[in-house]
Structure formats: C-alpha cells, structure tokens
C-alpha cells in the first residue's frame, strides 16, 4: 500500500491519507478482505500523529470503504462491481467538474472546452 503525503499539498493530512487509501481500493490494489495496518502502526510508519490516522480511517469507514472488526483490526470492505463502478463514475464527474469550472473562471469558451474534451476522447478511447 502506497500512501502519498506531502506538506506542500493544500489538503489536510487526514484527507491525503483518506484519498490515498481510497485510490488503492478503487484501483483494485487493495481487495475486499485485505487487512489494513492498525491505526497506531500506520502512525508509526508514517511518523504522523495517531489522531490524524484515526480520522482518515473513520471517514473511510463512514464511506463504507473499510470495516473495523473489534479486536481484529481494519479490513477493506466487500463491495460489488456495480458499487465500485458508480464510485469511479462519481470521482470522474467530480474531476471533470473541477476542470470545467476552472475553464469557466479563466474565460475559456464553452465550444473550446468541448473541442478539447472531444479531442482527448478520440485520442484515449
């Protein structure tokens, strides 16, 4: 499991950890049932405060990405392919929205955005 964190990143640390683990799950690098390091172990490995890791795990649990088995630890939650697909779509929509709103803010014309978008689609698919 690779967790990328950086002080230069404007996101708070817990969010960076949350995003890293979520990405590993969505990419299928972490599979349902896989054990995660304990909160304190990960805190030690990353030399980051326990509370920060706790918060990241709590939010992963609230979003049903991981589950906690009392006394056993944290595991990647079971989920079906439909759910993962919808989570991925959700993430894609969020990113496209970000790009489009940035384009709008900087005065790029709608038709230009469409052109770029179609060009990228042509090239990638």
């Amino acid at each position: 499991m690779f967790i990328s964190i950086s002080n230069q990143d404007p996101r708070p640390l817990y969010e960076q950890i949350y995003d890293s683990i979520k990405t590993e799950i969505l990419k299928g690098k972490l599979m349902p049932g896989d054990a995660l390091p304990s909160i304190r172990q990960l805190a030690q490995d990353l030399k980051i405060s326990v509370i920060t890791i706790k918060r990241a795990y709590l939010e992963l649990e609230q979003d049903k990405l991981i589950i906690t088995r009392p006394g056993k630890g944290c595991f990647v939650a079971d989920r079906d392919i439909k759910e993962i697909t919808s989570l991925n779509l959700h993430e894609i929509e969020r990113q496209i929205r970000e790009v489009v709103s940035k384009a709008k803010k900087t005065g790029v014309l709608r038709q230009n955005v469409e052109q770029i978008f179609n060009k990228v689609l042509e090239e990638e698919y």
């Binding site: 304190r40 172990q41 805190a43 030690q44 030399k47 326990v50």
Partner: peptide, 15 residues
Amino acid sequence: RDELLGILMEFIQDE
C-alpha cells in the same frame, strides 16, 4: 531528532 520521533511513536503503540 527523527530517530527520537520514531522511538516516541513506538512507545505509544501501547494505547
């Protein structure tokens, strides 16, 4: 200093 931080993190592995 970094070594010390590691020692302290290890110490609180016991909650």
